Amino acid sequence: MTTPWILGLTGGIGSGKSAAAEHFSTLGIHTVDADQVARWVVEPGRPALEQIAHRFGVDILLPDGRLDRPALRARIFSAPDERRWLEQLLHPLIRQETIRMLGEATSPYAILVSPLLIESGQIQMTQRVLVIDAPEALQLERAIRRDQASEAQIRAIIAAQLARDERLRQADDVIVNNDGLAHLNEQVERLHRFYLTLQGGKHA
């Protein structure tokens, strides 16, 4: 059996990357979500959580033993050394777990879904990159509705993410998601048919 090649799927907040990934999944494609992996490595019982509690104290945990994410974010936000320590602990674990999960794929290609695919260096794990793109006004509208957040909060997230032009420059394929779910799904299916013809993510 040939090893599945890896497609990196990314896009800014509110672009619709999760909806696209979901549709690829219904087409039988193995998908791994980097955000879910990042949450999983700090679940109770995982070694990383013990080290975090040891470093920051048990008040970084919720009463049920799970990580208090807002508290941790607040602690590292203004402390670059602590943030670096946390990244050095978590990034190798996330990478290792992501590779393991992608390795379980039996579909012709597998997808790594990550909002920080390019910035985090996860792009190096992929053979091809698909960017889900949307006009900024639409990103704002969707993200505000979905996250019940203010426009200022969403604008701050957009500003902190990779510039749209740079993301598009790294893309092998782009889906412009500006016309509802049916249109998005059609474009996913069109690319899926194309991807099935590729060897290692490239033209044979």
Rank of each mutant, 00 (worst) to 15 (best):
G65D: 09
A48V: 08
D133W: 07
R83C: 00
R145G: 11
A53M: 11
N185P: 07
M125V: 03
L184V: 01
G45E: 09
W40A: 14
L196P: 12
I13N: 12
H30P: 11
R39E: 01
A21T: 13
I13P: 13
P44N: 12
T10G: 01
G14H: 07
A71Y: 01
P92R: 15
L62W: 03
T31D: 07
E87Y: 02
D147K: 14
D172W: 00
T2F: 05
Q153M: 13
P4L: 03
E22L: 14
L27E: 02
E82C: 11
G45T: 08
S18L: 02
P135I: 06
N177W: 06
G11P: 13
I132K: 13
I123H: 03
N177S: 11
L117V: 01
H54T: 14
S114R: 07
L168Y: 05
E136G: 09
P63E: 02
S78C: 03
E97T: 14
E119Q: 06
Y109P: 13
D133K: 07
Q199W: 03
Q88T: 02
R55W: 11
R95T: 15
V113E: 14
L198Q: 09
R46C: 14
G12C: 00
A21P: 12
T10F: 00
R39S: 08
A171D: 05
A48I: 12
L196M: 12
L198N: 02
D147T: 13
I94G: 10
P70A: 09
D81I: 00
L196F: 05
E87D: 10
Q36P: 00
E97Y: 08
G65Y: 05
Q88F: 00
L117C: 02
R146A: 10
R169V: 09
G45M: 12
Q148P: 00
G65P: 13
A171W: 04
A143I: 10
N177I: 05
Q36N: 09
V41Q: 04
H183D: 13
P44W: 11
T98G: 06
P44F: 11
A105C: 07
D133I: 10
M1P: 14
K17H: 01
N185G: 02
R169S: 08
P4A: 04
L162S: 00
I99M: 14
R146I: 09
K17R: 06
S78R: 13
V131D: 04
R128F: 04
L191V: 14
R190Q: 15
D172A: 02
I94S: 08
Y195H: 04
I132N: 09
E82N: 10
G200W: 13
E43F: 06
V129D: 03
L86W: 03
N185W: 14
W40H: 09
L130K: 10
A53K: 12
A152W: 06
V37Q: 04
I6C: 05
L117N: 01
R55C: 11
G103R: 12
Q88I: 01
L198Y: 05
A38D: 04
R164F: 00
R155V: 05
G65C: 10
T26I: 15
A159I: 06
L117A: 03
A53E: 12
N178D: 15
